[in-house]
Amino acid sequence: MRSFQDTLHHHGLHLVREVTSTLQINTGFRCNLACKHCHLDAGPARQEVMTRATMEEVLSFVRRNSFKLADITGGAPELVPDIAYLLDGLSLQVERVLFRSNLTLLTRGEYAALLEQLVAGKVAIAASFPSTNKKQADAQRGSGVWESSVKALKELNRLGYGKAGTGLELFLVANPAGAFLPVEQSRAEQRYKSELAAKWGIAFTNLYTFANMPLGRFRAWLERSGNLQPYMAKLAAGFNPATVAGLMCRSLISVSWDGFLYDCDFNLAAGLYHSGRRLHLSEVDTIGKGIPIISADHCYGCTAGAGFT
């Protein structure tokens, strides 16, 4: 298999940073779930979570830059003790805030205040919902997760999320339940919309489909199951040069729970620092254009087929 860098070179492509409009904040690896497709190896045993001091540095970094979107991810951001503080600070400084949720915590009683804060701030929610099929979803995320997710989606709908005219956006995110590529996004969305509405009366704003990244826990499963080589070959064979111009890493910068910068959350998982140096965001003034994006073979996961941005 040709390396990702060689493939870019072969097509005469250069992966460099454009205007950085999104700050993705990985608030930590602590999660109540241990999904098999997780590229970060997040789970209940992980202790890494963003402290209030790092949050303050994140907010200061946001003030020095002009991000339009703050994308809060984890782990499960619900489990970060000072998450409300971070949300408050971000809401004052960026046009849009996106909160990623695994759906199993957010609508539980103990997170009522957080949910209220999301509604009041019109914070968009991106929720993992890999399959409309219970067996497929639970095989990936754990027993009972699919049912809690359906229950949570109904509750979010009741609060106005995913309903037209409320300004409360609810995005679903679907990953394949194995070593194969995701369904083409627009077709998957049509099917999800009709099936979720017909079977459970659930509405949502849009669906995003992503390939599973050959990193973290998913990579370990690929290795154990003998799927790593054919999966990598499939991703590489599906390389579509037209996707490179629109890759998310060109307009996004990712910060880890401890404040270090990466070109995306996948590079964070791979330990590949932004600009190739271990830089803490407190050391960086602004993120400029033209900086080469650090890439490796897992980047084939974002360039296969129609691409996943």
Binding site: G178, L181, V183, R187
Partner: peptide, 12 residues
Amino acid sequence: TTACLEKGSNQA
């Protein structure tokens, strides 16, 4: 089998 999964069918 792969094509069906990638087109969004499930095992059932």
